[in-house]
Design a protein around this nucleic acid. Structure first.
Length: 248
DNA sequence: TCTGGGGTCCTAGGACCC
DNA sequence: TCTGGGGTCCTAGGACCC
């Protein structure tokens, strides 16, 4: 099993750590030169601010409604990211850092079976208390499925930030409800091509003949399909920054 | 008239991701 | 007037070599 831990609205959450007065306030972060929006707190998303929206287009209205804005501060975000990753690597020795705000944990590295629900909530609580940012967690037999689980954990408030896919029956049901474009590695172009051949859901994708994929698509999609079927085959760079020590 | 074939290295472009 | 910037991975094609 793999866990994907992803920080919610990462840059905006970082800015809120030391500014308790901003709790429940809309916060957006701008790209270099304040060109466009690159991160939004949930309150800003509710106001209708979209990702990569040009700042000049929304500035007046956003500020007049009480929105808060920051220029990006990547050194600060990298520092918070390191703290999150350190907490995670203490909880699980096998960690693949995928981006500044997310990491996969390989739960197969635990010798004993662990209670996945307890583990997930423990992660969430520790990162919240020790670092100060909220996270969503998806747990599943492959990285691609964990990524999908994570997306649902983040988007559907009923799940309280944690989705665990372990039963095959549950996974099948889950995949039937999942549009292909939500799958990690499937963007606009592939979605259009897949829909042309009648593939609309993640479950549809698992039903295509693998020769068809080989002939008409590429090895990336082939791997994605295998992952959706529960066969783990995506490996990330197994790098992990060494923990800080006294001798540097 | 049917123009060797296989390997390596490099680069550009496509697609996707955060 | 103002619309991110940095990645990975794969593929195809060109150049070169023996």
């Amino acid at each position: 099993m793999f866990a994907l831990i992803d920080c919610n609205s990462f840059y905006a959450s970082c800015e809120k750590i030391f500014r308790p007065d901003l709790k429940d306030r809309p916060v957006v972060i701008l790209s270099n030169n304040d060109g466009c929006v690159i991160a939004r707190s949930s309150e800003a998303k509710k106001m209708g601010v979209s990702m990569t929206q040009p700042w000049y287009q929304i500035k007046d209205q956003y500020l007049s409604k009480g929105g808060i804005v920051f220029s990006s501060n990547y050194e600060f975000y990298a520092d918070i990211s390191n703290r999150v990753m350190n907490v995670l690597s203490d909880l699980c020795p096998e960690i693949d850092i995928y981006s500044i705000d997310e990491a996969f944990l390989d739960l197969r590295s635990f010798k004993k079976n662990i209670d996945l629900v307890n583990f997930a909530y423990d992660c969430k609580r520790k990162i919240r208390e020790w670092v100060g940012v909220p996270v969503s967690i998806g747990i599943a037999p492959t990285k691609t499925l964990a990524k999908l689980a994570n997306k649902v954990a983040k988007d559907d408030p009923r799940f309280d930030g944690v989705v665990i896919l372990s039963e095959p029956r549950v996974i099948k049901h889950f995949l039937r409800s999942m549009p292909v474009e939500k799958i990690w590695g499937i963007g606009k172009r592939l979605t259009a091509r897949l829909e042309n051949i009648g593939v609309k859901t993640a479950h549809d994708l698992t039903q295509i003949d693998s020769r068809l994929i080989g002939d008409n698509f590429n090895v990336v999609l082939e791997r994605t399909v295998r992952e959706l079927k529960g066969q783990s085959c995506i490996t990330l760079h197994d790098f992990m920054e060494p923990k800080k020590t006294n001798n540097g």
